[in-house]
Amino acid sequence: MAGWIETYALADAAQRMLRVEAWKGRGATNRTRALISALPGLTAVPEVEGLADNWWQSDGALLALYEGEAKVFRSEEATFAALYAETKQRAEELRVTLHSIDP
C-alpha cells in the first residue's frame, strides 16, 4: 500500500503535462533503461519504487513505467511507459534526447 497515494498524485500531475512519447511491451522497459542513463538529473521517486509502478523525475520531466499488470499476468506486452514534459520547450529537448538514443 505504501506509495499508492504518491503514484496517483504523479499520474494526476502527468495528465496535466505534455506526453512526449509512450511505449508498450518489451520496448517500454528497454526505453526506460536507456532514458534513465541518457537524461541527466533523472532520479527515482523513492515513495513509489516498487513492483507495480516506478517513476523518475527531473527538471520539468516525468518518466513512468507501469509493470504491475505485466508481472501479475506474466506478459511483457502489458508493460507501459511514458515520458512527460512540463513545457513545450522541455518536450522538444526530450525529443532530441530520444532521437539521440534511438538504435
Rank of each mutant, 00 (worst) to 15 (best):
V48R: 03
P46A: 06
L65P: 00
V96L: 09
G68M: 07
G25S: 01
S58M: 06
L51K: 10
L42N: 05
A11V: 12
H99P: 02
A64C: 08
G27E: 12
D59H: 13
D102T: 15
K71L: 13
E21Y: 06
L94G: 04
L94K: 00
T87D: 00
T32K: 00
E21R: 14
W55M: 05
E76M: 10
M1P: 06
V48P: 02
V45C: 09
A61T: 14
R26E: 14
D59S: 10
N54M: 11
R26F: 11
N30A: 15
D53H: 14
D53M: 10
A13W: 07
T43K: 15
S37Y: 05
K71N: 11
L18K: 11
G50F: 04
V48L: 06
L63T: 00
L65G: 05
E86N: 12
R90S: 07
D59P: 01
R31V: 08
A2V: 14
A11K: 15
D53R: 09
M17H: 04
Y8S: 02
E69V: 10
W55R: 04
L39K: 00
W4Y: 09
K88V: 15
L63I: 06
W55S: 00
K24G: 03
L10F: 02
F73W: 15
R33A: 15
W23V: 05
F80N: 00
T79F: 08
D102F: 09
L10W: 02
R19M: 09
A28S: 11
P103F: 10
V20L: 01
A34H: 05
E92A: 13
A61F: 03
A78F: 15
A52N: 15
E21A: 15
H99Q: 13
A2W: 08
W56K: 03
G50D: 07
T87L: 05
E49R: 14
A78Y: 13
T43M: 12
I5W: 01
T7Y: 02
D102M: 06
K71W: 12
Y8G: 07
T97A: 05
T32F: 05
Y8W: 13
A9M: 06
R74V: 08
T79K: 09
E69P: 04
M1D: 03
